[in-house]
Design a binder for these strands. Sequence first.
DNA 1: GACGGAATGA
DNA 2: TCATTCCGTC
Length: 532
Amino acid sequence: MKAGCSIVDKPEGAEGYHFPEWAYKTESSPGSRQIQLWHFILELLQKEEFRHVIAWQQGEYGEFVIKDPDEVARLWGRRKCKPQMNYDKLSRALRYYYNKRILHKTKGKRFTYKFNFNKLVMPNYPFINIRPNGVVPQSAPPIPTASSRFHFPPLDSHSPTEDAQSSQFSGGSLGPSSQEPLNDSSDRKPDVPELEDVSSDWRRGVDLMASRNAVGPGSINNQKRKPEVMLPVFTRPGIYPDPHSPFAVSPLPGRGGVLNVPISPALSLTPTLFSYSPSPSLSPFTGSSCFSFNPEEMKHYLHSQACSVFNYHLSPRTFPRYPGLMVPPLQCQMHPEEQPQFPIKLQPPPVGRKNRERLESTEEATAPQLASASPRIKVEPIADKELESEEPPAKGKDKSEEEEEGPGMVMPNTSLEGERGAVFARPAVPSWPSAPPAPTRINFPTEESQGQGEGGGEKPSREPVGDTGVQEKREDALMPPKLRLKRRWNGDRQAEAPEEHQNGKLHWNGVLGASHLVPPPKAVTATAASDT
DNA sequence: GACGGAATGA
DNA sequence: TCATTCCGTC
Protein backbone atom coordinates (compact mmCIF):
# COMPACT_ATOMS: atom_id res chain seq x y z
CA MET A 1 0.00 0.00 0.00
CA LYS A 2 1.40 3.22 -0.98
CA ALA A 3 1.99 5.70 1.68
CA GLY A 4 -0.68 8.22 1.85
CA CYS A 5 -2.89 6.13 -0.25
CA SER A 6 -3.89 3.56 2.16
CA ILE A 7 -7.47 2.90 2.61
CA VAL A 8 -7.45 4.74 5.81
CA ASP A 9 -6.17 7.74 4.09
CA LYS A 10 -9.43 9.43 3.82
CA PRO A 11 -9.90 12.57 1.99
CA GLU A 12 -9.83 15.56 4.12
CA GLY A 13 -12.71 15.65 6.38
CA ALA A 14 -13.07 11.98 6.21
CA GLU A 15 -12.08 11.55 9.73
CA GLY A 16 -14.46 9.84 11.99
CA TYR A 17 -14.50 6.49 10.41
CA HIS A 18 -12.75 4.28 8.17
CA PHE A 19 -13.62 1.01 6.75
CA PRO A 20 -12.05 -2.17 7.64
CA GLU A 21 -9.72 -3.39 5.07
CA TRP A 22 -12.00 -6.04 3.89
CA ALA A 23 -14.50 -3.46 2.99
CA TYR A 24 -12.35 -2.53 0.13
CA LYS A 25 -11.88 -5.90 -1.09
CA THR A 26 -14.39 -6.62 -3.67
CA GLU A 27 -15.98 -9.81 -4.32
CA SER A 28 -15.56 -9.58 -7.97
CA SER A 29 -11.98 -8.74 -7.75
CA PRO A 30 -10.57 -10.96 -5.11
CA GLY A 31 -7.48 -9.61 -3.69
CA SER A 32 -8.36 -6.12 -4.53
CA ARG A 33 -8.70 -4.06 -1.50
CA GLN A 34 -8.82 -0.80 -3.22
CA ILE A 35 -11.78 1.26 -2.70
CA GLN A 36 -14.02 1.40 -5.61
CA LEU A 37 -15.22 4.55 -7.08
CA TRP A 38 -18.78 4.03 -6.12
CA HIS A 39 -17.67 3.46 -2.60
CA PHE A 40 -15.84 6.64 -2.71
CA ILE A 41 -18.73 8.51 -4.17
CA LEU A 42 -20.96 7.27 -1.47
CA GLU A 43 -18.44 8.22 1.02
CA LEU A 44 -18.32 11.72 -0.21
CA LEU A 45 -22.02 11.90 -0.39
CA GLN A 46 -22.29 11.07 3.21
CA LYS A 47 -19.98 13.72 4.33
CA GLU A 48 -21.29 17.05 4.95
CA GLU A 49 -18.02 18.64 4.25
CA PHE A 50 -18.27 17.54 0.68
CA ARG A 51 -21.69 18.74 0.15
CA HIS A 52 -20.45 21.54 -1.91
CA VAL A 53 -18.64 19.09 -4.06
CA ILE A 54 -21.09 16.34 -4.41
CA ALA A 55 -24.49 15.97 -2.95
CA TRP A 56 -27.65 14.08 -3.25
CA GLN A 57 -29.95 15.44 -5.77
CA GLN A 58 -33.04 16.93 -4.41
CA GLY A 59 -36.08 15.01 -5.16
CA GLU A 60 -34.44 12.00 -6.57
CA TYR A 61 -33.66 8.97 -4.68
CA GLY A 62 -30.12 7.93 -5.00
CA GLU A 63 -29.42 10.65 -7.43
CA PHE A 64 -26.49 12.81 -6.81
CA VAL A 65 -24.91 15.75 -8.44
CA ILE A 66 -21.29 16.34 -8.78
CA LYS A 67 -21.20 19.97 -8.11
CA ASP A 68 -17.54 20.27 -8.51
CA PRO A 69 -16.32 17.65 -10.90
CA ASP A 70 -12.79 18.74 -10.70
CA GLU A 71 -12.75 18.58 -6.99
CA VAL A 72 -14.35 15.20 -6.94
CA ALA A 73 -11.84 14.02 -9.44
CA ARG A 74 -9.12 15.50 -7.40
CA LEU A 75 -10.31 13.75 -4.31
CA TRP A 76 -10.63 10.57 -6.16
CA GLY A 77 -7.24 10.93 -7.62
CA ARG A 78 -5.90 11.63 -4.25
CA ARG A 79 -7.47 8.60 -2.83
CA LYS A 80 -6.17 6.51 -5.61
CA CYS A 81 -2.87 8.22 -5.83
CA LYS A 82 -3.63 9.29 -9.29
CA PRO A 83 -2.74 12.92 -9.36
CA GLN A 84 -3.57 13.04 -13.00
CA MET A 85 -7.10 12.12 -12.35
CA ASN A 86 -9.66 14.39 -13.78
CA TYR A 87 -13.31 14.36 -14.27
CA ASP A 88 -13.05 12.97 -17.70
CA LYS A 89 -11.31 9.94 -16.41
CA LEU A 90 -13.44 9.68 -13.40
CA SER A 91 -16.53 9.90 -15.47
CA ARG A 92 -15.22 7.17 -17.64
CA ALA A 93 -15.00 5.02 -14.61
CA LEU A 94 -18.46 6.02 -13.69
CA ARG A 95 -19.67 5.11 -17.09
CA TYR A 96 -18.38 1.68 -16.62
CA TYR A 97 -20.86 1.43 -13.85
CA TYR A 98 -23.64 1.87 -16.26
CA ASN A 99 -23.32 -1.55 -17.60
CA LYS A 100 -23.02 -2.90 -14.18
CA ARG A 101 -26.04 -0.98 -13.22
CA ILE A 102 -24.43 0.37 -10.22
CA LEU A 103 -24.94 3.79 -11.56
CA HIS A 104 -26.63 5.42 -14.38
CA LYS A 105 -26.68 8.82 -15.77
CA THR A 106 -29.47 11.17 -15.24
CA LYS A 107 -29.99 12.44 -18.65
CA GLY A 108 -30.26 16.04 -19.21
CA LYS A 109 -28.64 16.88 -15.96
CA ARG A 110 -25.04 17.67 -15.99
CA PHE A 111 -22.84 15.78 -13.63
CA THR A 112 -25.80 14.04 -12.29
CA TYR A 113 -25.81 10.36 -11.71
CA LYS A 114 -27.94 8.03 -9.90
CA PHE A 115 -27.16 5.05 -7.87
CA ASN A 116 -29.03 2.00 -8.66
CA PHE A 117 -29.48 0.85 -5.17
CA ASN A 118 -31.70 -1.77 -6.41
CA LYS A 119 -28.73 -3.52 -7.74
CA LEU A 120 -26.40 -2.13 -5.33
CA VAL A 121 -28.03 -3.30 -2.23
CA MET A 122 -31.26 -5.00 -2.58
CA PRO A 123 -30.12 -8.28 -3.92
CA ASN A 124 -28.03 -8.64 -0.91
CA TYR A 125 -30.63 -7.33 1.38
CA PRO A 126 -33.85 -8.58 0.01
CA PHE A 127 -35.54 -7.90 3.22
CA ILE A 128 -35.04 -4.30 3.03
CA ASN A 129 -38.45 -3.01 3.06
CA ILE A 130 -39.52 -0.87 0.27
CA ARG A 131 -42.98 -0.35 1.46
CA PRO A 132 -45.93 -2.51 1.85
CA ASN A 133 -47.23 -1.54 -1.48
CA GLY A 134 -43.89 -1.64 -3.04
CA VAL A 135 -43.87 1.97 -3.92
CA VAL A 136 -41.55 4.51 -2.69
CA PRO A 137 -41.99 8.08 -3.53
CA GLN A 138 -39.14 9.19 -5.57
CA SER A 139 -38.24 12.01 -3.42
CA ALA A 140 -39.04 10.39 -0.21
CA PRO A 141 -36.35 9.49 2.12
CA PRO A 142 -35.79 5.87 2.61
CA ILE A 143 -38.25 4.18 4.72
CA PRO A 144 -36.34 3.02 7.65
CA THR A 145 -37.22 -0.40 8.58
CA ALA A 146 -36.04 -2.62 11.22
CA SER A 147 -35.67 -5.31 8.70
CA SER A 148 -32.22 -4.32 7.86
CA ARG A 149 -30.73 -3.26 11.05
CA PHE A 150 -27.39 -4.55 11.83
CA HIS A 151 -24.67 -4.06 14.16
CA PHE A 152 -21.42 -3.04 12.88
CA PRO A 153 -18.27 -4.16 14.26
CA PRO A 154 -16.84 -1.42 16.27
CA LEU A 155 -14.79 0.88 14.28
CA ASP A 156 -12.29 3.37 15.18
CA SER A 157 -12.69 5.07 18.40
CA HIS A 158 -16.23 4.14 18.81
CA SER A 159 -16.98 2.36 21.87
CA PRO A 160 -17.55 -1.22 21.08
CA THR A 161 -20.28 -1.27 23.53
CA GLU A 162 -21.91 1.62 21.99
CA ASP A 163 -21.60 0.19 18.63
CA ALA A 164 -22.87 -3.05 19.68
CA GLN A 165 -25.92 -1.44 20.96
CA SER A 166 -26.60 1.26 18.57
CA SER A 167 -24.77 0.62 15.45
CA GLN A 168 -27.66 -0.84 13.72
CA PHE A 169 -28.06 0.70 10.46
CA SER A 170 -31.16 1.13 8.69
CA GLY A 171 -30.36 0.30 5.21
CA GLY A 172 -33.80 1.38 4.65
CA SER A 173 -35.55 1.04 1.50
CA LEU A 174 -33.18 2.07 -1.03
CA GLY A 175 -35.94 3.39 -2.93
CA PRO A 176 -34.64 4.41 -6.25
CA SER A 177 -35.76 1.18 -7.58
CA SER A 178 -39.23 2.29 -7.93
CA GLN A 179 -38.65 5.24 -10.02
CA GLU A 180 -35.78 4.22 -12.06
CA PRO A 181 -37.42 2.07 -14.52
CA LEU A 182 -39.53 4.79 -15.81
CA ASN A 183 -37.19 7.43 -16.75
CA ASP A 184 -34.11 5.50 -17.26
CA SER A 185 -35.09 2.84 -19.55
CA SER A 186 -33.64 4.85 -22.31
CA ASP A 187 -30.35 4.64 -20.60
CA ARG A 188 -30.31 0.97 -20.67
CA LYS A 189 -28.38 -0.74 -23.18
CA PRO A 190 -30.24 -3.32 -25.07
CA ASP A 191 -28.17 -5.99 -23.54
CA VAL A 192 -29.09 -5.05 -20.04
CA PRO A 193 -32.76 -4.66 -20.19
CA GLU A 194 -33.56 -6.42 -17.04
CA LEU A 195 -33.50 -3.60 -14.68
CA GLU A 196 -36.91 -2.39 -15.33
CA ASP A 197 -38.67 -5.63 -15.14
CA VAL A 198 -36.60 -7.04 -12.52
CA SER A 199 -36.67 -4.21 -10.21
CA SER A 200 -40.35 -4.24 -10.00
CA ASP A 201 -40.80 -7.92 -9.98
CA TRP A 202 -38.02 -8.46 -7.73
CA ARG A 203 -39.18 -5.76 -5.48
CA ARG A 204 -42.44 -7.42 -5.18
CA GLY A 205 -40.65 -10.32 -3.86
CA VAL A 206 -38.86 -8.08 -1.55
CA ASP A 207 -42.04 -6.65 -0.38
CA LEU A 208 -43.36 -9.99 0.28
CA MET A 209 -40.60 -10.66 2.56
CA ALA A 210 -40.39 -7.24 3.85
CA SER A 211 -43.96 -6.97 4.73
CA ARG A 212 -43.52 -9.35 7.47
CA ASN A 213 -40.29 -7.95 8.51
CA ALA A 214 -41.02 -4.41 8.04
CA VAL A 215 -42.38 -3.80 11.40
CA GLY A 216 -40.98 -4.33 14.72
CA PRO A 217 -37.61 -3.44 15.88
CA GLY A 218 -36.62 -6.97 16.02
CA SER A 219 -36.75 -8.01 12.50
CA ILE A 220 -33.50 -8.51 10.91
CA ASN A 221 -31.89 -8.59 7.68
CA ASN A 222 -31.69 -12.19 7.19
CA GLN A 223 -29.58 -11.94 4.20
CA LYS A 224 -26.66 -10.93 6.14
CA ARG A 225 -25.13 -14.09 6.96
CA LYS A 226 -21.95 -12.34 7.73
CA PRO A 227 -22.56 -9.25 9.61
CA GLU A 228 -19.01 -8.33 9.17
CA VAL A 229 -19.67 -7.95 5.58
CA MET A 230 -21.58 -4.96 6.46
CA LEU A 231 -19.89 -2.01 5.16
CA PRO A 232 -20.15 0.66 7.72
CA VAL A 233 -19.92 3.21 5.14
CA PHE A 234 -21.14 6.01 7.18
CA THR A 235 -20.93 6.39 10.79
CA ARG A 236 -21.93 9.22 12.85
CA PRO A 237 -19.19 11.70 12.48
CA GLY A 238 -19.71 12.45 8.91
CA ILE A 239 -23.25 11.68 8.30
CA TYR A 240 -25.93 14.09 7.95
CA PRO A 241 -29.54 13.38 7.68
CA ASP A 242 -30.23 14.11 4.16
CA PRO A 243 -33.78 13.55 3.22
CA HIS A 244 -32.67 12.64 -0.22
CA SER A 245 -30.05 10.38 0.81
CA PRO A 246 -30.89 6.81 0.24
CA PHE A 247 -29.30 6.10 3.49
CA ALA A 248 -31.89 6.09 6.03
CA VAL A 249 -31.49 7.58 9.33
CA SER A 250 -32.40 4.95 11.69
CA PRO A 251 -35.54 5.62 13.53
CA LEU A 252 -33.98 3.95 16.38
CA PRO A 253 -31.78 5.57 18.83
CA GLY A 254 -28.21 5.27 18.18
CA ARG A 255 -26.36 5.28 15.03
CA GLY A 256 -28.13 6.82 12.23
CA GLY A 257 -28.02 6.30 8.59
CA VAL A 258 -25.71 3.70 7.54
CA LEU A 259 -25.77 2.01 4.32
CA ASN A 260 -25.60 -1.64 4.17
CA VAL A 261 -23.70 -1.58 1.04
CA PRO A 262 -22.40 -4.84 -0.02
CA ILE A 263 -18.79 -5.07 -0.54
CA SER A 264 -19.25 -4.94 -4.15
CA PRO A 265 -22.32 -4.16 -6.04
CA ALA A 266 -20.86 -6.02 -8.86
CA LEU A 267 -21.81 -9.04 -6.96
CA SER A 268 -25.36 -8.47 -7.45
CA LEU A 269 -24.93 -7.63 -10.99
CA THR A 270 -24.04 -11.06 -11.80
CA PRO A 271 -27.12 -13.10 -11.61
CA THR A 272 -25.21 -16.08 -10.53
CA LEU A 273 -23.87 -14.16 -7.67
CA PHE A 274 -26.88 -12.39 -6.69
CA SER A 275 -26.94 -14.18 -3.55
CA TYR A 276 -24.29 -12.80 -1.49
CA SER A 277 -21.47 -15.15 -1.25
CA PRO A 278 -18.42 -13.57 0.05
CA SER A 279 -15.30 -15.13 -0.95
CA PRO A 280 -13.68 -17.19 1.68
CA SER A 281 -10.73 -14.99 1.80
CA LEU A 282 -13.05 -12.24 2.43
CA SER A 283 -14.31 -13.72 5.54
CA PRO A 284 -11.79 -13.58 8.23
CA PHE A 285 -14.61 -13.32 10.62
CA THR A 286 -16.20 -16.32 11.90
CA GLY A 287 -18.69 -16.57 14.57
CA SER A 288 -18.76 -13.06 15.69
CA SER A 289 -22.13 -11.78 15.07
CA CYS A 290 -23.14 -8.25 14.99
CA PHE A 291 -26.68 -8.99 14.27
CA SER A 292 -29.28 -7.43 16.26
CA PHE A 293 -32.57 -8.99 16.07
CA ASN A 294 -35.60 -9.90 17.89
CA PRO A 295 -35.78 -13.59 18.44
CA GLU A 296 -39.47 -13.58 18.01
CA GLU A 297 -39.23 -11.87 14.74
CA MET A 298 -36.56 -14.18 13.78
CA LYS A 299 -38.60 -17.16 14.64
CA HIS A 300 -41.46 -15.79 12.81
CA TYR A 301 -39.47 -15.25 9.78
CA LEU A 302 -37.82 -18.55 9.94
CA HIS A 303 -41.12 -20.13 10.28
CA SER A 304 -42.35 -18.48 7.22
CA GLN A 305 -39.22 -19.28 5.42
CA ALA A 306 -39.41 -22.83 6.42
CA CYS A 307 -42.89 -23.06 5.23
CA SER A 308 -41.92 -21.52 2.02
CA VAL A 309 -39.16 -23.92 1.53
CA PHE A 310 -41.34 -26.73 2.39
CA ASN A 311 -44.42 -25.86 0.53
CA TYR A 312 -42.99 -24.21 -2.43
CA HIS A 313 -40.22 -26.52 -3.14
CA LEU A 314 -37.68 -23.95 -2.63
CA SER A 315 -34.22 -24.92 -2.24
CA PRO A 316 -33.33 -25.20 1.38
CA ARG A 317 -30.59 -22.94 0.42
CA THR A 318 -33.12 -20.30 0.62
CA PHE A 319 -33.39 -21.02 4.18
CA PRO A 320 -31.30 -18.57 5.98
CA ARG A 321 -28.86 -19.45 8.56
CA TYR A 322 -28.44 -17.78 11.77
CA PRO A 323 -25.61 -18.73 13.89
CA GLY A 324 -26.79 -20.28 16.98
CA LEU A 325 -30.35 -19.80 16.23
CA MET A 326 -32.59 -22.67 16.65
CA VAL A 327 -36.01 -22.55 15.29
CA PRO A 328 -38.64 -23.97 17.46
CA PRO A 329 -40.76 -26.65 15.99
CA LEU A 330 -43.05 -25.32 13.43
CA GLN A 331 -46.34 -26.53 12.47
CA CYS A 332 -45.56 -26.73 8.89
CA GLN A 333 -42.60 -28.85 9.31
CA MET A 334 -42.74 -32.49 8.98
CA HIS A 335 -40.88 -34.90 10.93
CA PRO A 336 -39.13 -37.41 8.83
CA GLU A 337 -41.00 -40.12 10.52
CA GLU A 338 -44.21 -38.63 9.39
CA GLN A 339 -43.28 -38.23 5.87
CA PRO A 340 -44.55 -41.50 4.66
CA GLN A 341 -47.91 -40.39 5.83
CA PHE A 342 -47.62 -37.43 3.65
CA PRO A 343 -46.59 -38.83 0.40
CA ILE A 344 -44.74 -36.41 -1.59
CA LYS A 345 -46.06 -35.73 -4.91
CA LEU A 346 -44.39 -34.14 -7.73
CA GLN A 347 -45.81 -30.86 -8.44
CA PRO A 348 -45.03 -28.21 -10.88
CA PRO A 349 -43.34 -25.34 -9.33
CA PRO A 350 -45.45 -22.68 -7.89
CA VAL A 351 -46.65 -20.19 -10.32
CA GLY A 352 -44.25 -17.87 -8.76
CA ARG A 353 -45.16 -14.64 -7.32
CA LYS A 354 -48.71 -15.57 -7.17
CA ASN A 355 -48.02 -18.46 -5.00
CA ARG A 356 -45.61 -16.53 -3.01
CA GLU A 357 -48.15 -13.91 -2.39
CA ARG A 358 -50.54 -16.47 -1.35
CA LEU A 359 -47.97 -17.77 0.96
CA GLU A 360 -47.44 -14.37 2.23
CA SER A 361 -51.01 -13.94 3.08
CA THR A 362 -51.54 -17.31 4.50
CA GLU A 363 -48.32 -18.44 5.88
CA GLU A 364 -49.11 -17.35 9.31
CA ALA A 365 -52.66 -18.38 9.48
CA THR A 366 -52.29 -21.54 7.60
CA ALA A 367 -49.21 -22.89 9.05
CA PRO A 368 -51.15 -25.69 10.59
CA GLN A 369 -52.85 -26.39 7.35
CA LEU A 370 -49.64 -26.71 5.62
CA ALA A 371 -48.91 -29.79 7.47
CA SER A 372 -52.34 -31.12 7.33
CA ALA A 373 -52.61 -30.42 3.70
CA SER A 374 -49.80 -32.84 3.32
CA PRO A 375 -47.96 -30.93 0.73
CA ARG A 376 -46.28 -33.13 -1.63
CA ILE A 377 -42.84 -32.40 -2.54
CA LYS A 378 -40.31 -34.04 -4.52
CA VAL A 379 -36.85 -33.71 -3.38
CA GLU A 380 -34.20 -33.90 -5.90
CA PRO A 381 -30.51 -33.67 -5.83
CA ILE A 382 -28.96 -30.75 -7.37
CA ALA A 383 -25.49 -30.09 -8.35
CA ASP A 384 -23.46 -27.89 -6.18
CA LYS A 385 -23.55 -25.11 -8.55
CA GLU A 386 -27.20 -25.23 -8.87
CA LEU A 387 -27.42 -21.59 -8.41
CA GLU A 388 -24.66 -20.72 -10.65
CA SER A 389 -26.39 -22.39 -13.43
CA GLU A 390 -29.80 -21.70 -12.21
CA GLU A 391 -31.34 -22.66 -15.41
CA PRO A 392 -34.85 -21.74 -16.13
CA PRO A 393 -36.60 -23.98 -13.72
CA ALA A 394 -39.89 -24.73 -15.16
CA LYS A 395 -40.47 -24.00 -18.71
CA GLY A 396 -43.29 -21.78 -17.85
CA LYS A 397 -41.33 -19.57 -15.68
CA ASP A 398 -40.86 -16.23 -17.13
CA LYS A 399 -37.85 -14.10 -16.91
CA SER A 400 -39.08 -11.82 -14.28
CA GLU A 401 -39.75 -14.67 -12.04
CA GLU A 402 -36.39 -16.01 -12.59
CA GLU A 403 -34.89 -12.77 -11.73
CA GLU A 404 -37.07 -12.43 -8.82
CA GLU A 405 -36.39 -15.74 -7.45
CA GLY A 406 -32.82 -15.94 -8.35
CA PRO A 407 -31.19 -12.68 -7.66
CA GLY A 408 -33.64 -11.22 -5.38
CA MET A 409 -34.93 -13.95 -3.35
CA VAL A 410 -32.17 -16.35 -3.22
CA MET A 411 -30.55 -16.22 0.05
CA PRO A 412 -27.07 -15.09 0.32
CA ASN A 413 -25.82 -18.26 1.68
CA THR A 414 -26.58 -20.26 -1.31
CA SER A 415 -23.06 -21.09 -1.98
CA LEU A 416 -22.24 -22.29 1.40
CA GLU A 417 -20.23 -25.28 1.88
CA GLY A 418 -22.67 -26.56 4.28
CA GLU A 419 -25.27 -26.39 1.65
CA ARG A 420 -23.57 -28.80 -0.51
CA GLY A 421 -25.52 -31.84 -0.69
CA ALA A 422 -29.07 -32.62 -1.21
CA VAL A 423 -31.16 -29.70 -1.90
CA PHE A 424 -34.59 -29.18 -3.04
CA ALA A 425 -34.77 -29.27 -6.63
CA ARG A 426 -37.36 -27.99 -8.82
CA PRO A 427 -40.28 -30.27 -8.74
CA ALA A 428 -40.64 -32.17 -11.84
CA VAL A 429 -43.42 -33.75 -13.67
CA PRO A 430 -44.89 -36.54 -11.74
CA SER A 431 -43.48 -39.79 -12.77
CA TRP A 432 -46.22 -41.94 -11.49
CA PRO A 433 -49.02 -41.53 -13.87
CA SER A 434 -50.80 -44.45 -12.46
CA ALA A 435 -48.75 -45.84 -9.72
CA PRO A 436 -49.06 -44.39 -6.30
CA PRO A 437 -46.37 -41.96 -5.49
CA ALA A 438 -43.55 -43.15 -3.49
CA PRO A 439 -42.97 -41.68 -0.16
CA THR A 440 -40.85 -38.72 0.15
CA ARG A 441 -38.37 -38.78 -2.56
CA ILE A 442 -35.16 -37.69 -1.31
CA ASN A 443 -32.02 -37.71 -3.20
CA PHE A 444 -28.66 -37.30 -1.88
CA PRO A 445 -25.94 -35.73 -3.74
CA THR A 446 -23.96 -38.21 -5.52
CA GLU A 447 -21.89 -37.65 -8.49
CA GLU A 448 -24.38 -39.21 -10.70
CA SER A 449 -27.31 -37.52 -9.25
CA GLN A 450 -25.71 -34.23 -9.56
CA GLY A 451 -25.26 -34.78 -13.14
CA GLN A 452 -28.87 -35.51 -13.58
CA GLY A 453 -30.47 -33.14 -11.27
CA GLU A 454 -29.80 -30.17 -13.37
CA GLY A 455 -31.69 -31.38 -16.27
CA GLY A 456 -34.79 -29.86 -14.97
CA GLY A 457 -36.86 -32.80 -15.94
CA GLU A 458 -36.90 -36.03 -14.16
CA LYS A 459 -35.59 -39.06 -15.72
CA PRO A 460 -37.79 -42.04 -15.60
CA SER A 461 -34.87 -43.95 -14.34
CA ARG A 462 -35.04 -42.06 -11.14
CA GLU A 463 -37.93 -43.97 -9.90
CA PRO A 464 -38.35 -44.41 -6.28
CA VAL A 465 -36.89 -47.52 -4.96
CA GLY A 466 -39.25 -47.59 -2.15
CA ASP A 467 -40.45 -51.17 -2.41
CA THR A 468 -37.38 -52.95 -1.48
CA GLY A 469 -38.88 -55.84 0.24
CA VAL A 470 -39.43 -57.16 3.64
CA GLN A 471 -35.84 -57.39 4.52
CA GLU A 472 -35.28 -53.83 3.85
CA LYS A 473 -38.31 -52.92 5.78
CA ARG A 474 -36.87 -54.69 8.68
CA GLU A 475 -33.70 -52.82 8.26
CA ASP A 476 -35.64 -49.74 7.97
CA ALA A 477 -37.20 -50.33 11.25
CA LEU A 478 -33.83 -50.38 12.80
CA MET A 479 -32.64 -47.53 10.78
CA PRO A 480 -32.81 -43.97 11.73
CA PRO A 481 -35.58 -42.28 9.93
CA LYS A 482 -33.31 -40.21 7.88
CA LEU A 483 -31.31 -43.09 6.77
CA ARG A 484 -34.42 -45.00 6.12
CA LEU A 485 -35.71 -42.39 3.86
CA LYS A 486 -32.45 -42.15 2.22
CA ARG A 487 -32.38 -45.78 1.53
CA ARG A 488 -35.80 -45.78 0.19
CA TRP A 489 -34.96 -43.19 -2.15
CA ASN A 490 -31.59 -44.17 -3.20
CA GLY A 491 -31.95 -47.82 -2.90
CA ASP A 492 -28.75 -49.62 -3.24
CA ARG A 493 -27.03 -46.52 -4.33
CA GLN A 494 -26.78 -45.89 -0.71
CA ALA A 495 -24.74 -48.94 -0.24
CA GLU A 496 -22.50 -48.13 -3.09
CA ALA A 497 -21.44 -44.82 -1.83
CA PRO A 498 -22.24 -44.77 1.79
CA GLU A 499 -19.45 -42.51 2.73
CA GLU A 500 -21.00 -39.75 0.84
CA HIS A 501 -24.01 -39.87 2.95
CA GLN A 502 -22.54 -40.21 6.26
CA ASN A 503 -21.77 -36.75 7.07
CA GLY A 504 -24.19 -34.80 9.02
CA LYS A 505 -24.80 -32.04 6.63
CA LEU A 506 -25.99 -34.34 4.02
CA HIS A 507 -28.27 -35.87 6.45
CA TRP A 508 -29.89 -32.82 7.52
CA ASN A 509 -29.93 -31.42 4.13
CA GLY A 510 -31.43 -34.39 2.64
CA VAL A 511 -34.20 -34.86 5.02
CA LEU A 512 -37.25 -32.93 4.56
CA GLY A 513 -38.82 -31.50 7.55
CA ALA A 514 -37.57 -30.57 10.88
CA SER A 515 -34.02 -31.01 9.99
CA HIS A 516 -34.42 -28.34 7.47
CA LEU A 517 -36.03 -26.10 9.81
CA VAL A 518 -33.58 -26.69 12.47
CA PRO A 519 -30.32 -27.41 10.88
CA PRO A 520 -27.86 -28.86 13.21
CA PRO A 521 -26.01 -26.21 15.02
CA LYS A 522 -22.90 -27.59 13.64
CA ALA A 523 -23.99 -27.02 10.15
CA VAL A 524 -25.27 -23.66 10.97
CA THR A 525 -22.25 -22.45 12.67
CA ALA A 526 -20.03 -23.95 10.15
CA THR A 527 -21.97 -22.24 7.50
CA ALA A 528 -21.80 -18.96 9.17
CA ALA A 529 -18.32 -19.26 10.32
CA SER A 530 -16.49 -20.41 7.39
CA ASP A 531 -16.97 -20.32 3.73
CA THR A 532 -13.88 -22.08 3.01
C1' DG B 1 -20.63 17.08 -21.54
C1' DA B 2 -21.44 12.54 -22.43
C1' DC B 3 -20.46 8.26 -24.44
C1' DG B 4 -17.91 4.21 -25.27
C1' DG B 5 -13.99 1.63 -27.67
C1' DA B 6 -9.37 0.31 -27.04
C1' DA B 7 -5.11 -0.39 -24.81
C1' DT B 8 -3.05 -0.84 -20.61
C1' DG B 9 -1.93 -1.54 -15.71
C1' DA B 10 -2.42 -3.40 -11.16
C1' DT C 1 -11.86 -6.80 -12.49
C1' DC C 2 -11.62 -2.33 -12.08
C1' DA C 3 -10.05 1.23 -13.18
C1' DT C 4 -6.85 4.57 -15.93
C1' DT C 5 -5.70 6.78 -20.00
C1' DC C 6 -6.50 8.24 -24.48
C1' DC C 7 -9.31 9.39 -27.98
C1' DG C 8 -12.99 9.78 -31.53
C1' DT C 9 -17.71 10.74 -31.90
C1' DC C 10 -22.08 12.91 -30.99
